[in-house]
Design a protein around this nucleic acid. Structure first.
Lengths: 155, 155
DNA sequence: CTTGATATGATATAATGTAACATAATAATA
DNA sequence: TATTATTATGTTACATTATATCATATCAAG
């Protein structure tokens, strides 16, 4: 993410936290900034390393885990359960309400696209699940994909 | 899984391996049996422990990982990427060809149901993915659910 | 029966994550 | 402001999941 957009996004995050009565401390904001600048999802330990490089002071991985929990609670970051990695929410700046995210994960270059899947498709999924006697709790999907770029170069 | 069904399933696994020219060794078969008897998915280390209890001889976790790789290659077991756990394929005995599995994971009791999602739903998902410029590689879904039982008792 | 390939054992270590307690910073209130 | 309560962060220890590497054992083919 470019510097100008980064600043704006961090501002939006600030506002969003203020609205929910949460404290976006400097370090939490820095962790979010690391995620926003990253081209791919990062592990907690990778975030800690990058934080050290970006801000000149080391941060314990344990703190990163807690800050990621905070950011996830505030819908500012998401965890990719299938990868054990974390990424910034793609919809911090744009207002449109925080629906459950779906992720397209390029298995070649690890680039991730956060999208919204059509309600009909989710509804159909939910129907199938109910039909099997289960109840869908979250519709966060993590799909194993090839991105456009890798798709072309691999073909 | 009941003993009678277990035997039959292991027989089917044997045949399936013979058909593909793979060797279902005793230990691989035992690991599969551990998974078939388990009520929930198990981690590799849990499998190793259970193997020790069931067969009276310890097995190194590293061996279990290799055997799980083998079983996954043969479509006899699956890995739940979101849980880092493994489970037996639900379709070893029944012939119907091995489609990509989808899993309903009860987040309360960890019970997992392997189902097939309607081709239309998968196709719709695939369309959405293509629309975003990505290409769907596998349609293995791992859905965060409540099972019927837990749904009732939690309500 | 011996050679080559495959399977397993053993050891070390990396990567991810949690638990528990200490200290520091902030907020609320007297 | 001083005091106290709450929240945030640091520190240490350790649990869990996974991979890499090399040695040994077992099986299959000639």
């Amino acid at each position: 993410m470019k510097a100008s957009q980064l600043k704006q996004t961090l501002g939006a995050a600030e506002q969003s936290c203020r609205a929910s009565g949460a404290r976006l401390t400097e370090k939490r904001r820095n962790v979010l900034a690391v995620l926003l600048r990253a081209k791919t999802p990062l592990s907690a330990y990778e975030i800690a390393e990058q934080y050290g490089r970006d801000y000149g002071e080391p941060i314990p991985a344990m703190s990163v885990y807690r800050m990621l929990d905070f950011l996830a609670d505030e819908n500012l970051a998401h965890k990719l359960n299938s990868e054990n990695k974390y990424l910034a929410c793609a919809h911090i700046a744009c207002d449109h309400s925080h629906e459950t995210p779906q992720f397209l994960i390029c298995s070649r270059c690890s680039k991730v696209r956060e999208i919204g899947i059509k309600p009909e498709v989710i509804a159909a999924l939910r129907d199938t699940v109910e039909g099997a006697g289960y109840h869908l709790l979250t519709s966060q999907l993590e799909l194993d994909c090839l991105c456009d770029e890798c798709g072309r170069s691999a073909a």
